[in-house]
């Protein structure tokens, strides 16, 4: 933005940029009136490492490890997205089994992504317990990743036209067991958060996006769900 925020009669405060090990390095310049944010400007470039430029000097397969680092929680999903794009350029069709394993990995990533998102959100509002409950599940899923590809965070599991390796023996039963346990943890956190006075006070009616804003900014996904607008999941298919 070219112009500074008007400072009067607001308190101007810099939130961040904070350390990269936090939820993401972002600088927010806010105008505060008491506890209420009246206006803000964003500086989003801190996490930009220009992987696209690095990809120019590497081969197609050498780019896969870069995609691990695009989002450290859903490395698997970024692996899948990248190799699917390359396969589309090549006109290659992968086997049904490979497609299914990729879907399972992407879904597990999506689950841990949501666990971290909700857990960290609660931590920021002062509720640490939920985070540990969710982290236990997240660790279990990382065990599954480790068994499949040898790495927990930076997986590099996919290859153009396939995967690094097939699933090890007993993996599917192990995975089922972990997934079966998940609802219990969700119930635990639901009990802690959903009717929690502090959680409700700090989230309900905060940062509400009007339907008009959602349409003109082309927003899709969970933010639109409560408003009955089409979500990406309904309107397109990933694989």
């Amino acid at each position: 933005m070219n112009t500074a925020l008007p400072t009067e009669p607001f308190l101007q405060l810099n939130l961040g940029p904070s350390h990269p090990a936090t939820h993401g390095t972002l600088r927010i310049l806010v105008n505060l009136e008491g506890e209420i944010i009246r206006d803000m400007k964003l500086e989003i470039g801190y996490l930009h490492r220009c992987f696209e430029k690095m990809a120019e000097t590497h081969t197609w397969n050498q780019v896969i490890p870069f995609t691990d680092r695009l989002n450290y929680v859903s490395a698997m999903m970024n692996n899948v997205g990248y190799v699917m794009a390359v396969e589309k350029l090549l006109g290659v069709q992968v086997t049904k089994r490979c497609q299914r394993i990729r879907v399972i990995m992407a879904e597990l990533s999506r689950i841990i992504d949501h666990l971290v998102c909700i857990g960290a959100n609660a931590v920021d509002l002062g509720a640490l317990t939920c985070f540990w409950y969710f982290f236990r599940e997240r660790e279990n899923i990382y065990d599954l990743f480790e068994a499949a590809c040898g790495a927990r965070l930076t997986t590099s599991y996919t290859r153009v036209g396939g995967l690094l390796a097939d699933l090890p023996e007993g993996w599917t039963d192990w995975c089922r067991k972990i997934i079966d346990n998940l609802p219990r943890t969700l119930d635990d956190v639901e009990g802690l958060l959903t009717t929690n006075r502090i959680w409700i006070d700090r989230t309900q009616g905060v940062g509400v996006l009007s339907e008009n804003v959602l349409w003109i900014t082309d927003s899709r996904g969970p933010v639109c769900e409560p408003r009955g607008m089409p979500t990406m999941c309904e309107s397109t298919s990933l694989l």
């Binding site: 989003i44 470039g45 220009c50 430029k53 690095m54 120019e56 000097t57």
Partner: peptide
């Protein structure tokens, strides 16, 4: 500029920008 620093000179994804 939205991603690069304001002091940055050039446009990094152009092929004539060295890697």
């Amino acid at each position: 500029r939205i991603l690069c620093h304001q002091e940055f000179v050039g446009h990094p994804l152009r092929k004539d920008y060295p890697s």
